[in-house]
Write a protein that binds this DNA or RNA. Structure first.
Length: 299
DNA sequence: CATGCGTGGTA
DNA sequence: TTACCAAGCAT
């Protein structure tokens, strides 16, 4: 029995949430004053599917070394992949490098401030485009990540967890967004609430600042959703790719096929497939004499 | 729209 | 220990 009511009053009160955020926010380096739009963009790339604690040290070193898009673009792709280290999903590093190049060459070294232009850049999708427009430029646009979707699912819809991402998510958050210049702080607060209180595993409802929560009002019904299959890692092509790339990150000159082969001996067909996919992705390249290196090693 | 893509911390 | 999870994107 879905209850359809016009939402004259947002379920989540903006000033209540913002007051909580001012008090409870984590001191994250990319939120500090003086951080540029590019540096915020870099943090968003790194935070795509990677926990804050692992991003922090890499981000600090990264922006000290390459503070602007052009500085990043001028770096070699191989060094960028090395600096990315073991953050995971190294295609993000390649796309960040490409993104820096486009911004440096086509946008005068200035990060675009509108969602549509941001969306056209490599590695930037619906979340990151909005996060940059909002957090770097103060634009009043809904910012919807997995944390926000979970908080909205619970507080607004009374569900235990978010469903599949849909275009509906944007409208939900748009309806909650304050009309004034506090919108960006509302968005970062909503994300922070999902990241630190309204968490996926064991939400800390005892310290939640929200006055109304649909999920709580309904007595915290359990999820009936047949949870999405959890991703395997051990023994997958992803693990093999990681091993191969780890070998190459540790070398500053091309390595022989034999040196790569020892990184994965369990299944040689799988190893060959992984190496081929790295070549296809442009993360690894083959030299004229048949050896292998991180892409752009010679540049 | 489902799937592939890294890595390491925590329960 | 296994299983789950962490500010998504591209195809």
């Amino acid at each position: 029995m879905a209850v359809i009511l016009p939402q004259a009053v947002p379920v989540i009160d903006a000033s209540t949430l913002i007051d909580w955020y001012v008090r409870a926010q984590r001191d994250l380096p990319w939120r500090r004053p003086g951080v540029s739009a590019w540096q915020i963009l870099v943090s968003e790339f790194m935070l795509q599917q990677t926990p804050v604690a692992r991003v922090e040290p890499i981000w600090l070193a990264w922006i000290a070394r390459w503070p602007t898009p052009s500085a990043t673009a001028d770096a070699g792709a191989a060094d960028v992949l090395r600096a990315w280290g073991k953050l995971g999903y190294p295609r993000r590093a390649k796309r960040l490098h490409e993104c820096a190049t486009v911004i440096a060459t086509e946008h005068g070294d200035v990060v675009p401030d509108d969602v549509d232009t941001l969306l056209s850049l490599p590695g930037i999708g619906t979340y990151t485009a909005r996060a940059v427009a909002c957090f770097a430029y103060g634009k009043r646009v809904p910012v919807v990540d997995t944390n926000v979707r979970r908080v909205v699912a619970r507080a607004v819809h009374g569900l235990p967890d978010a469903g599949s991402p849909s275009t509906r998510d944007l409208a939900d958050v748009e309806a909650l967004l304050p009309d004034d210049e506090t919108a960006p702080q509302f968005s970062v607060a909503l994300m922070e609430l999902g990241a630190t209180v309204c968490t996926a595993r064991s939400p800390r409802c005892g310290v939640c600042p929200l006055e109304h929560c649909g999920w709580r009002a309904r007595g915290f019904p359990a999820g009936t959703a047949p949870a999405k299959r959890v991703q395997k890692y051990a023994g997958t092509d992803r693990q093999v790719r990681g091993r191969l790339l780890d070998v190459l990150r540790g070398k500053d000159s091309p390595v022989t096929r034999a040196e790569l082969d020892v990184a994965w001996t369990v299944d040689t067909a799988q190893r060959d497939r992984a190496l081929d996919s790295l070549l296809v992705d442009g993360l690894v390249e083959q030299t004229a004499d048949g050896r292998f290196a991180l892409c752009g090693e010679a540049d």
